[in-house]
Design a protein around this nucleic acid. Structure first.
Lengths: 139, 139
DNA sequence: TTAAATTAGTTAGCCTAGGTAACTATATAC
DNA sequence: GTATATAGTTACCTAGGCTAACTAATTTAA
């Protein structure tokens, strides 16, 4: 087994357990991890159109439509007119901003437990590796 | 955004694009990445029962049943009697072993391209980080 | 300046990769 | 010898995407 194969093996092995447990953490906010990813984007980088969200998350437009619809029903986001009549800007509601901050606090111990015993520097290196792969994959 | 949040952000962002492209690579062998993961386990660690595969991959028994059924239809694996009449051991067929080696060669450039520009040492660190998280998550 | 092409978003229906509940058959414990 | 546990299967459900085909608005080009 090469070092590359081993890396991607571990990468894949972690995905389900982590996502499942994250979904459990998010249950009390009626959210799934995919929806949480949208909220994270909005709080970190401000309002975005649906196409922008799709490009950022590397998913297709119809997937974004559903995610945003669900977040809208929960009252966490709202859409406002964009720079032309086609575009919709998605932004957090006041309630949404409060909830996102609450969730971030709620998730903190979970994420810290997941990374327990890992030196900060190693987390940073691993983060850079993942980002680099993402860039490599998209040419 | 904390360093932990940033790590898991990058982790999640990479998942779909990578899996989608891996599935494209595996298309000519009529395999999906989930099925490939089973073949990888069998070639690396020898024959396993369905329950063992489930435990190793952190998925449920019915999911393994389906994966193994599909691999059986393709002629890549076969099941033989286990240590009692309930247990089935899943092992690669002769054809399966040939194919797995062929696929590993086929995937090599793809995986290397994905990790292009990443120092070997950083890959190792990232691999350890992922393995540690996996362990932390399962207590 | 109108016709063709492009872009933002939606709807409908599909797929992968899982999951749970409930079952059968065999094995173990009391 | 009955109760419990274990290996595997079947049926059905869910998350988190996908493509194709559409509408409405905008831009390009003839």
């Amino acid at each position: 087994m090469t070092i590359e194969q081993n890396f991607f093996n571990e990468y894949r092995l972690m995905y389900r357990p982590f996502t499942n447990q994250l979904n459990v953490q998010l249950e009390k906010y009626q959210l799934y991890s995919s929806q949480w990813a949208v909220l994270r984007l909005l709080i970190d980088k401000g309002p975005h159109s649906l196409v922008e969200i799709a490009n950022f998350m590397f998913i297709e437009k119809p997937s974004v439509t559903r995610l945003v619809q669900k977040l809208g029903e929960l009252g966490y986001v709202e859409t406002v007119a964009g720079k032309d009549k086609r575009e919709k800007l998605v932004q957090l509601t006041a309630h949404g901003e409060t909830i996102v901050q609450e969730i971030q606090e709620h998730l903190k111990p979970f994420l810290e437990k997941a990374l327990a015993g890992v030196p900060t520097q190693d987390i940073e290196i691993a983060t850079q590796v993942l980002a680099r792969i993402c860039a490599n994959i998209h040419q």
